[in-house]
Design a protein around this nucleic acid. Structure first.
Lengths: 251, 251
DNA sequence: TCATCCAATTTTGAATGCAATTTGACGAGC
DNA sequence: GCTCGTCAAATTGCATTCAAAATTGGATGA
């Protein structure tokens, strides 16, 4: 307390830090910046392959380059951006090949989650998933895509949560974030066959989970993700002519 | 078109930029520090729960605090250390619970690798794994623990490699690194039953891989890791009295 | 007209500096 | 004797600064 405390100066103001709550429970400025920057990129505010303008983002976030660059290193380790030596950061371009890879890993993680969930899930937690399943079915019948997606994601999240494995949850969330960037417009509305198939797969999922058949559920979940990927890929192929690349990097 | 082509200059020297620089070979100081620091921690040079002394490491690596702190953020995101606001970095203490979690995730990743490997593995790659398997069997018969471990790890690495999925390989390597820190002395020499069981499981693994039975191989691999974890846990329990914790953090 | 070269500007990577917080210790008070 | 409050030293987090590399723009020459 003996140090000159500036908080008595009301007109301090060079860096107002408006929205940041003082000393929120545990997180520092770095985490704040990291989360915001990740959100910023995942949301698609930066084109794939585009340079990440340090100075601009510094001004936008009201910070200096040091914490921003720290966040960039972390995002690079997460695979969201890539750091070219002496050439700055770019938003990683995700190719077709990598999308397939990410889907497969997601499938493996969900398979694991399903297996673990069968070992640990409580009856109330299962009942909640069952409820979500029926709600989702209602959305399916009504062709309510938005509600369907919400329930669908909630179910998968509950399964991962029921696995009760922090390392799995964190890894799953990381891959989900990486995949969220790709706009795989799995527009089920244009693909009624796939929608019905997905719904049937979810029936199998619920059934296996009810029977606590771990290995079986894992297998179903992996194939479920595989089919989802294939549907997304065909959709993508239908929308995007082959070979078309949004060139944002000349070299 | 207007790109300045420097390749006409024969005596350019330091970085000729011949054609297209693949970013993988170019490493900055940051990556160097990151790799060295990770190695430093994984190798166990810092006690679990101990503070990570910034200034000391700066002198040790001959760098300033900025790149070191960047590396610390990345290692924290990898789960090797934890960052307490205003209280610095500590080596993460891995509890019994987390070891179980990590083993399960490893099991899930290996199961995925096995499944994918069945889809993609070439005959020569399988033959190589088969060769390693027989070599490992020889080590088993001779009770050569070191050789056995080497072959064992080589086999698992080959399976992951055969999956041909960069995202999977990177994630697998990350978890392997986190687990390498824990000295689960699965000393098979004191646990002949487990050793024989592991050998039989590897027979099953090879058999399923030969038949390209993906789902089955995934199941075997997951259970293989589960059994390995259980053996390690019982071993740990036999060595460490229950409740004993190497307290390195007073708080 | 076009490609090549060179200097100025911008941008990146790392070091240093500074305020704020924590840590540890000493002494006053109960 | 023990607890609590105050203070100095060390540490942390972030901003600023500095050197080096890349990019840009114009000048030069074929």
């Amino acid at each position: 307390m003996t140090l000159a405390t500036r908080e008595s100066d009301p007109a301090n103001g060079p860096i107002p830090l408006p929205s940041k709550p003082r000393e929120s429970l545990v997180h520092s400025l770095h985490d704040e910046v990291l989360a915001r920057l990740r959100e910023f990129i995942v949301e698609g505010n930066l084109a794939a392959g585009a340079r990440v303008p340090e100075r601009l983002l510094c001004e936008r976030f009201g910070i200096s380059r040091t914490p921003l660059r720290e966040a960039l290193k972390v995002l690079a380790s997460e695979g969201l951006i890539e750091l070219l030596p002496n050439r700055g950061a770019r938003v990683r371009r995700i190719g077709e090949r990598e999308i397939v890879e990410l889907f497969d890993v997601m499938g493996g993680l969900e398979a694991l989650a399903g297996r673990l969930a069968c070992e640990r899930i409580s009856d109330p937690a299962f009942a909640e998933i069952e409820r979500l399943h029926h709600e989702m079915y209602g959305h399916y019948l009504r062709r309510d895509l938005h509600g369907y997606f919400a329930c669908n994601q909630a179910i998968h999240d509950r399964i991962v949560g029921a696995a009760d494995n922090a390392a799995l949850s964190a890894t799953y969330a990381g891959f989900a974030g990486r995949l969220r960037r790709v706009r795989y417009s799995a527009n089920l509305d244009d693909n009624r066959d796939r929608w019905g198939e997905a719904m049937r797969e979810h029936e199998e999922i619920l059934d296996a989970l009810r029977r606590r058949a771990g290995a079986e559920l894992g297998d179903i979940l992996f194939r479920h993700l595989r089919n989802k990927r294939k549907a997304a890929a065909s959709q993508e192929a239908a929308v995007t002519p082959p070979g078309e690349v949004v060139a944002a990097e000349s070299a």
